[in-house]
């Protein structure tokens, strides 16, 4: 499995960067002030701009859409899947906290629902607070995402007594600290790629989680 993974991963990386270097050869002479790759990995596209992202990987894959409502506020929706057995549809806002020539810092808050189909079903409301730090250098955008996710899993207890049936609910908490370290690349102003390493410690601190990797394709533009 390791061999297959190594070859696949290496192949993806090589193919991506070969494509990128060809694109670089054909790039326009003016650098991109803002581009889809930056908006995707750094968050908070400007007012009127949007970016659609598809990131495929193991174990996490993502579909994400972001629309700039103002120069600082972004509306976003996201669907995350872990190996096709755990899904998180989310809706939220992003706030551009800092912006400079080579830095963009975004805070994001999302809320949604968790659906996990496994030996133990996990379903319930889910929220996430995360920060994106992107450092655009021409076409390249190294980025870091740090987040904290919280899911609340409702359990139902029913007690049949002689006097009648009582029901009560309780909630279990699932915490997932999250980190992504990646590199975005602008093929053009409207099309970008990214490659990232994810670590989502699902069920921390009582569990062990494996790190993952994703490759993303991003499309952006103005409304």
């Amino acid at each position: 499995m390791n061999v297959r993974f190594g070859v696949t991963f290496g192949g993806c990386v090589i193919a991506t960067l070969l494509g990128a270097s060809e694109a670089a050869a054909a790039e326009p002479r003016t650098p991109f002030p803002a581009h889809a790759a930056l908006d995707a990995v750094g968050g908070s596209p400007a007012k009127g701009a949007y970016v659609l992202s598809a990131q495929g990987g193991w174990p996490f894959s993502f579909l994400r859409a972001q629309v700039g409502l103002s120069d600082r506020i972004t509306l976003q929706s996201e669907l995350e899947s872990a190996v096709g057995r755990r899904y998180r549809p989310m809706l939220g806002i992003g706030v551009r906290l800092a912006e400079a020539t080579h830095v963009r810092l975004t805070g994001e808050f999302l809320a949604g629902w968790l659906f996990q189909r496994s030996e133990e079903y996990r379903r319930g409301p889910n929220g996430e607070l995360r920060f994106r730090l992107a450092i655009p250098v021409r076409r390249f955008v190294p980025y870091l995402v740090l987040g904290t996710r919280h899911a609340f899993l409702p359990d139902l207890l029913t007690i049949e007594r002689a006097s009648g049936t009582e029901t009560s609910w309780s909630l279990r908490h699932e915490w997932t600290p999250w980190a992504t370290l990646g590199l975005g690349f602008a093929i053009s102003r409207g099309i970008g790629l990214d490659l990232g390493i994810n670590y989502g410690w699902v069920g921390a601190p009582d569990t062990i989680a494996l790190p993952g990797v994703h490759l993303g394709l991003h499309f952006g533009g103005d409304r």
Partner: peptide, 16 residues
Amino acid sequence: VLAGCVNEETRLYEIE
């Protein structure tokens, strides 16, 4: 929505 999202359902029967 809530009925479709129960994780663990425990049904107990009280006996004296």
